[in-house]
Each structure stands twice: as C-alpha cells, then as structure tokens.
Design a protein around this nucleic acid. Structure first.
Lengths: 117, 117
DNA sequence: AAAATGCGTGAACACGTGTTCATGTATCGA
DNA sequence: TCGATACATGAACACGTGTTCACGCATTTT
C-alpha cells in the first residue's frame, strides 16, 4: 500500500530533515558515537567528546527530543544511551560509508565541462 | 585492523557531520528525494520541489561538492542524479525509518523522573 | 545577429543556532 | 547542616548559513 514510494510528503520531509540536522553537528555526532559503546553519564560524555558539561547537557536535550537518545537516572548519574538499535545501526553504516568514501573512487567520470569549478 | 571500532577520529567525524548537515536542510532533502526517481534537469527539480531555480542551483553545488549528486550535461540541460546506490539506499532507509518512528511506540518506558519536562 | 532558454555565480541580508556564562535543583557525603 | 557533585536551565552573544536579487555565460532558435 503506502510502501516507500520514494516521495515523502511535507511533514515527513520536515521530520527527516530535522533528524539529519541534529546529526549534522560535530559535537552531537561525537556524543552519539560515544554512546555507541553503551550507556554513559553526562560528565563522562563531556570528557569523552572534549566539551563542557553544560554544552553536552544542552545537546542531550535536543537529542532526547528527537528520540535519538534516552536518559535513565541511576543513583546520582543520568546514563544516556541510543534510543534503539535502528539509530546505532544507521550510525555504524554511515561511519563505514564515510570511510570507503574517503578512498576517492578515482573519479570514474570527468565532470561534463566547467562543472568542477 | 582498522575495522569499524565505532570510534571515528576527528577528521572522519567532521566529514560525517558535514554530510549529515547537508541532508539536514528541507530544500536539499527534497532535491535529493526528487532525484530518487532518476536523473532530472535543474529546472525540473526546481519545479518539483517548489523552489527557485537559482536556489536549487546553489544547493546542487553543495551536494555536488559532497559527492551526493552528480551532474551530466545533456544538450541544453544538465541532468542531476544521486552519485551512487549507497546514497539512494540510505535515503530510502531513512524515509522508512522516519515513517515507523512516526507511529509513536506508545512510550514503552516512562522517563526516570522529571526528565520528560 | 539577436533574442530566448537553461544554468551558474557573487554579493548581501535575515535568521537560526551552537556555545558560553551564570544560576538553579537534586542527591550524596562529612 | 554544610558542602560538593551531577545535571538541567535560561539568557545572551557571535557566527554560520539559507535565501533572494542581480548578473554573467553558453547554447539554441528564429
């Protein structure tokens, strides 16, 4: 029925873009990648990504709102983890993708003309 | 050796974030999704996504620089298409992901306490 | 040649947004 | 109780960035 017809409507695109936008910040990306190793406390994340704890807290709020991470209070700490396997899976995929992309496919196609700028 | 250890270094993260950032703009996302159906001319894309041709051209330049799309000059038109199957595959995945995410998992886990804000 | 079409480029502006500073609120230890 | 730790929050600022406007360059058509 409504199977992926490749044409997402307005609301879907907005939602998608918002998710991508959050992933588009280096600090947030580092935070998420740090969480790939398992639940972490805010302070630990801050130290791991080399950012102030305040900053990490701010970003975590956004990531929480987008359901990319989930925080669980444990004793004095709040442990954050990726919401589901979907997120972590996609992160790993993109990391791999970026890595092979880094190998420069040896420009298999010389831009038409005057396109390379 | 350098197997995906989940911890991407600085440069990789910067590259990744940059890619995500480009995907994080609704207009660019629409452009890419429009290209999912096959190569399209700039004017056609502009009409499809409801944006000025100038704007689309600007975005296409960025998407080209990130190797997300590729332009091929054909007669008077320049046909743009997604660079490789990797990109299109990931786009489709994310669209699907966003769709099921939209179904609201019925809050399977009541936030610890005072986290929901 | 002249006009029209298709596309790219540069400058300029308005706005969003990432970051920091300062402060507030629980929770744990002495 | 007092202090310290761990985290969240609000205000304010600086900067990047998406968009538009105006223009330039090829190519095609008449």
């Amino acid at each position: 029925m409504s199977r992926a017809d490749a044409t997402a409507d307005g609301d879907e695109i907005t939602l998608l873009a918002e998710t991508f936008r959050l992933l588009g910040d280096p600090t947030r990306l580092r935070i998420l990648i740090a969480c790939l190793g398992g639940p972490m406390a805010v302070g630990a994340i801050a130290e791991a990504v080399g950012a102030s704890q305040t900053l990490v807290s701010h970003h975590l709020r956004l990531l929480r709102a987008a359901r990319l991470v989930r925080g669980e209070k444990q004793a004095r700490h709040v442990l954050y983890a990726l919401t589901d396997a979907h997120v972590s899976q996609m992160l790993r995929d993109m990391i791999d993708h970026a890595r092979e992309d880094d190998h420069e496919p040896a420009a298999p196609m010389p831009q038409p003309e005057g396109m390379t700028r």
